[in-house]
Each structure stands twice: as C-alpha cells, then as structure tokens.
Nucleic acid binder design. Structure first.
Lengths: 233, 233
DNA sequence: AAATGAAAAATTTTCGAAAATCCGTATCGA
DNA sequence: TCGATACGGATTTTCGAAAATTTTTCATTT
C-alpha cells in the first residue's frame, strides 16, 4: 500500500467519524502535519475523496470537507434504495453457497459485537464502535456481494460511506438512546436471503433504509446544529 | 482551471475516443511528454480517472487504461437503465418550464448536427463527430437534469462516459454503416418529456439503452478484436 | 464612509530531483 | 534443470522548493 492509499483511508475515516466536520477547509500545511505526508500523496488522496463526494475542490482555492444537509441525506437514502434493492435481487439470483455462508457469518459477527456492546455497563469506547461499524459495513456488503455488477457495487459502497457520515456521530453520542433493534431487521434480511426470497429481501432493504433515514433525520439537529442548508452558502 | 483539471479532461477524452486503448499501460514519462505537464497534475488526474473506473491503479505498479469487455458493457447498460429510468421519472416530476425548454433545445441542437453529418458526401471529420457526441451527451444530460438528485446525476455521468468508450469508435469507423435512426428515438423521448409521460419516457429510455447495447455488441468484435475478457488476464 | 487598487501575506499548485519499489536478467547452489 | 537470490536498470512514488494564485491589509481617492 502506498502512502497515498494510507492518507486516503485516514482522511476518509476522519470525515466519516466527524473528526473533520462538514464544511471544514483542508489546508495543505495542516494536513501535512496531521497525516505526516508530503503534498503529493495528500493531494492524490483528496482527489479520490472528491470523486467520492466527501470533499469539495474549488480551483486554486483548495479542498474542504463537503457539506451535509437533510436534503442530501434523503437523496443518499433514496438512491441507496434504488441501487441496493436491485443489487440484492441480482445477488439472490446469482449467489452460490459461498455467498450464503458469507451472509450468515457476517450477520453473526455483527450480532456478536452488537450484543457485547449492549451488555456493557459503561459507554462503549470509540474503538469498540469502530469495530461494530466495520462489521455492519461488512454485512451490508455481503448481502449484495454476488450481484455480478461492479458498477452497482462501487455505487453502493460510496453511498454507504456517505450515510455513515450521518450515522456514526449518533452511535458515539452517549446521551442518545438507541432503542431501535437493528439485529431483528438484519436477521430478517439474512433469512430472506437464505430462502432466496428476492421480493422479500428487496422490501426489507427498502424498509430498513427508510427507517434509517428517519433515525438520521430525528437526530440530525441534535448532532449537527446549524449544519442544514450549508450547501447554499 | 488548473493543469490537473486540464490533464483530466485530455486523458479522459483520449480514453473515450480510443487514442489510449483499453489495457494500455500509462507510463509517467510518456504522459509527461504527451500532455506537457509534471508528475503532480498528471497523478491527480489519474487518481480521479481511477474513481471513474477509466483507469486501473496497481500499487507501485502504475496506471493503465481499464479493460473493456462485452460483459462489462452490459453491466454499464443495465445499470444505466436502472439509474436513468428513475432519474427521468423524477426529472419529469420536478422539472419546470426552463427544463422542458432545455430538453427541446438540446434535441434540436443534436438533430441539426446529426442531419448535417448525414447529408455529407464525404466521411465526417473527427471534429464533426466530437461535436455530435457533445450534443448527444448534452441531450441525455438534459433529460434527467431536473431529477433533484446529485447522486443520480453523478452516477449517470460516469456510466454515460463509460458507454461512449464502446460507442465512439463505431461512430468514427467509416466502414460501418449506421442505419439506426437515433433522431426518431430521441424525438419520441423529448415528446414523452414535454407531455409529462413518466411511464412512457422510462420505457423509451430503457428501449433506447437496450438497443444501444445491442448495437455495441454487434460491433464489438469488429472494433475491438481480442479485447473481450481482457479483464481476466 | 465607501470604493478602488496596490502591496504583502497566506495558500495552492506545479516542478524535477531523490528515494523507494518493481521487474527482468544473470548467477549460484542443489 | 530447476529454484532461489542478488544485481542493475526501469519505473513509480514521495518530497520540499519554487511558481502561481488567491486573500488580506491598508493607504488613497471619490
């Protein structure tokens, strides 16, 4: 892995976790210090992130973390529904044993960590939440992995990351209580997959994403005060 | 516009027109000479093109033009159908007068150039074909322009460019006769749009893209001998 | 006071040299 | 003969200085 790859991962993670907040200008000198790399790998990473719509680039005016808004969040959710319902149908159509096994095992990995964090008598550490998030991402990826379309997969990946920008800060906020039982929804999804029920799986994904959107909307103002409509500025 | 932006445009155009053929390794020194720029802007451009899936990057092994295949072409077409049918529905739902006018005027611009090239008693120049292609792209963009989803628009743009990789070499090959009357299909699309017929427009887009896919498939072997399955190598 | 514009400061962008890495070839030992 | 390994050239990747650009400051004019 090159330095540019490494910078890409680090900056992307900092944007998703909110360490680099929406709208934040990204000055090259500051980035150099923070990520311990020269101009070249940093600029390569930023150019990739621009293609992911995670940073904005204004000619000769540098990079900044792209803004967020409720409108944009619903755009991502709606587009995810379009992409992922199609991808899960194809995945169910083409998937083999190996794929089914991956779905089941990634679900189990996710529920183990989910359970573990639920039973904690203290707030979860950032590391524990990152591990949960990693398994959550892996499960969602597994569901559509055998759709046989590299384009759908790449779009789904980008959209997923963008939703995490809205979701991650909710996970780490200890004041918010997360009543929603995701385990149930995830299990039903995996069941639809193993019984090769394409219509059912598509409907479950859609419901799951709509519910996610509502959760994100309900917490948006609390987590991101005054961030809405920032794009208009 | 920065040098990096300019390099991006030039290299992207060279990939789409086939000047840089699929699979071609892109050596930095050669690019430096060809595009008259230093390492930095070139590498920035290549990193963006990688996100567009137009070039592949193997860690420390440099860039190469990404391969093409019939399989990949159908993946692009199928994904375009998914994205563009949804986008045109939303576009019809949200579009105002300005949008309708843009559709009509971009259709007219396209048919003017199309007519002009048809009536030529000599083969069209590369420049004339590039102008046609520009208007074709503008028309397709206009149809979905008011869908109100930046994500759909950015996906549609990337997919469109990728299809042009298969289509452009057919346009410039003087031996192939292009019987297909695109004007008719485009006019019907514009009509569906101005009569706000979402189902009709979606069906027309789908048919249009499927037909395009068939044309590309029929000409693939002639234009790209031995290119298929290159990805496997 | 507001607007203009020139000079200075801050910042981004670009360049080519230097470091790191890869790839083909030759050499060695089993 | 085959496989492993070391060498050298080719190539990519990274670095920081230099050039270009934007932003800020501040004096001057209207």
């Amino acid at each position: 892995m090159t330095l540019a790859d490494h910078c890409y991962d680090l900056i992307r993670s900092d944007i998703v976790t909110g360490v680099l907040p929406p709208g934040q200008p990204l000055k090259m000198d500051a980035l150099k210090v923070r990520y311990g790399a020269g101009f070249s790998p940093l600029r390569e990473a930023l150019n990739r992130l621009q293609a992911d719509r995670l940073v904005d680039l204004a000619s000769s005016r540098g990079f900044r973390v792209s803004s967020i808004s409720l409108e944009e969040m619903w755009d991502v959710i709606q587009t995810r529904i379009l992409i992922e319902t199609d991808a899960i149908r194809k995945s169910i159509q083409y998937g083999d044993d190996r794929w089914e096994i991956d779905v089941v095992s990634s679900l189990h990995a996710l529920s183990l960590q989910s359970q573990r964090l639920n039973e904690l008598d203290r707030p979860a550490t950032n590391e524990e939440i990152l591990s949960l998030e990693k398994r959550h991402s892996a499960f969602h990826k597994a569901l559509i992995a055998s759709c046989q379309s590299q384009w759908l997969l790449s779009f789904a990946e980008k959209l997923y990351v963008e939703t995490e920008r809205y979701r991650f800060p909710i996970l780490t906020d200890r004041k918010l209580n997360k009543k929603r039982n995701l385990n149930d929804e995830h299990t039903r999804l995996a069941n639809a997959v193993t019984s090769r029920d394409a219509d059912g799986a598509a409907a479950l994904i859609e419901a799951h994403l709509l519910k996610t959107g509502e959760t994100l909307e309900n917490n948006f103002e609390i987590i991101f005060p005054d961030q809405n409509q920032l794009a208009a500025g």
